[in-house]
Amino acid sequence: MRLRDWALDDRCYAVRLGASLMGVNLPTLTDATALKTGPALEIDGGILHGPADILQRLTSLPEVSREWHLGIGEERRDAWAESALERFSHLRQTALLAGLPTEGIPPQAFDLMTEIEDRLSDDRLRERPWVSGSHPGVADILLFPIAALSQDLEVPLDLYPAIRNFIRQFKALPGFMTMPGVPECH
């Protein structure tokens, strides 16, 4: 098993982060195509694409705790979280490659952050501690890079208290790992 990875790509980070949190030893191979097409997992003689599918595959490995599976009756939000990460990844690449001066924060960045903030805020009032339910899951891992790297879009986090709370809570998880732009929790 090996991950075709690009260290600075947010979708690749989601997979590395997930593997670290689940306690999976995941060797990586730096592959520039991952910057365009996202992470790819070489496994069982085949190749798996897409951060959600890869993370779900990792949860089924024998060494991974059952806690990473959804609880009974819990709504699966992986598809929504993956779509949010894809949109963010596109916005972030555009922002990082843009010539200066920029035209400010794109409205789509506010739309995305608002969508995530609404969900996290409602969950908190309903005493649902994680996006995936009572335990962090694939959807939380997919959302974390968006929250933590939103500064690359210059979105001010003082406008999104529930996202700030999610970042703080997530960084305290055992096995949490950083990437450039995502510092450790103190």
Binding site: P156, L157, D158, P161, A162, R164, N165, R168
Partner: peptide, 16 residues
């Protein structure tokens, strides 16, 4: 500037 619950004990938060 913020809700009290958004700055839990032992944390710092930005505001403008």
């Amino acid at each position: 500037l913020a809700l009290g619950m958004d700055v839990p004990p032992g944390t710092a938060a930005p505001a403008r």
